[in-house]
């Protein structure tokens, strides 16, 4: 049994303009000790999915479906029990280290308070433990840096402080939301190293939310590709990140600079007004009438690897990336 399993999860925001469907019928398993990558472009609902797991959404959001963690349903759990889960069992490593730390507290205190809360430690030993954690994460001069404030630290250092805070409760599942966004190559490799170290030492599972395919390739066992609130392909990381079957995943790969910088034509649909049938139809090179009429079911490609597309046989036959061909004809 998976550590965390989501079944038919829907997250809807009720706004003045209407219902924003951020997650649509999402089913995903995260096995214990494994790293699952959630990839897709901005606005595809990746972060909302991560926050849905911890029910950390604003009041205008409604959640339906099922999220089971070690068999318990998170969506029906009373607040007190959920509070016990947050941080201790499932922890969040939030996006943007520059805005996630408290600007008026010393960085060391922010780790220490987590240790006091989650591990019931006294302040002094907790402070020592916090320093030890920072040493483990290769933060230079930990004694000095722990007494400094977030604005005095570089982006990579802040990322390490956040990483330390996120594991103060020794979680079995870490949700890391875009940990390497906007970082340069050197820092990105460092952050990747930190995450590998954290999950390696604690044996924790991780849901890695990222649009960076390189980060995903270096950390993930499995990958789920998200588009317009739906998971469109799911399977082993090394397969999907080198030779995906869903046309959207193929387009994502082809738009990397090293694969020729070929963009997917057009833009994603508005989450306020999603098309019937396949959500990707308007940008897809394989789209036919059936795509506009019926939502494609999961098609099994091989063991543990499936995609939501009516035409995976075509893409299997062609044995190459659709979007690497001549795009001029179809460009919008």
């Amino acid at each position: 049994m998976a550590l965390l399993s989501m079944r038919n999860l829907n997250t809807v925001f009720h706004s003045e303009e209407g219902k924003i469907k951020a997650c649509n019928d999402v089913s995903l398993d995260i096995p214990a000790g494994k790293t699952v990558g959630l990839i897709g472009e901005t606005g595809s609902g990746k972060s909302v999915l991560g926050l849905s797991i911890l029910r950390l959404l604003p009041r205008n959001a409604s959640l339906t479906g099922e999220i089971r963690y070690k068999g318990q349903d998170i969506l029906t759990m009373p607040g007190k029990q959920l509070q016990q889960l947050r941080g201790n069992e499932i922890a969040l490593l939030p996006q943007s280290p520059s805005t996630s730390l408290n600007p008026v507290l010393q960085t060391g205190s922010q780790i220490t308070e987590g240790l006091c809360l989650h591990r019931k430690m006294k302040w002094k030993p907790a402070w020592e433990k916090a320093l030890a954690m920072l040493r483990l994460l290769n933060l230079p001069q930990p004694e000095k840096k722990a007494r400094e404030y977030p604005h005095q630290l570089s982006g990579g250092m802040k990322q390490r402080i956040l990483a330390a805070i996120s594991v103060t409760g020794r979680p079995s599942l870490l949700i890391a939301d875009e940990p390497a966004k906007g970082l340069d190559a050197v820092l990105r490799a460092q952050v990747t190293g930190i995450l590998r170290q954290l999950t390696g030492e604690t044996g924790a599972a991780m849901l890695l939310i990222t649009h960076d395919l390189k980060v995903a390739a270096s950390l993930c066992d499995e990958v789920a590709v998200m588009y317009a609130g739906e998971i469109v392909e799911n399977g082993p990381a090394e397969k999907i990140l080198t030779n995906p079957v869903h046309p959207y995943a193929q387009g994502l790969l082809a738009s990397l600079p090293e694969h020729g910088l070929r963009p997917i034509p057009g833009y994603g649909p508005s989450l306020l007004d999603l098309p019937a049938g396949c959500k990707f139809q308007r940008r897809c090179l394989l789209a036919r009438d059936v795509c506009a009429e019926k939502r494609p079911p999961w098609q099994v490609f091989s063991n543990g690897w499936h995609a939501r597309c009516w035409f995976i046989d075509q893409s299997r036959k062609s044995q190459q990336n659709l979007y690497r061909g001549d795009l001029q004809k179809t460009a919008v």
Binding site: L213, L252, L256, P263
Partner: peptide, 9 residues
């Protein structure tokens, strides 16, 4: 994002 980046570049 990578796909938007490819368009802009």
């Amino acid at each position: 994002d990578v796909s938007v980046q490819a368009q802009v570049l």
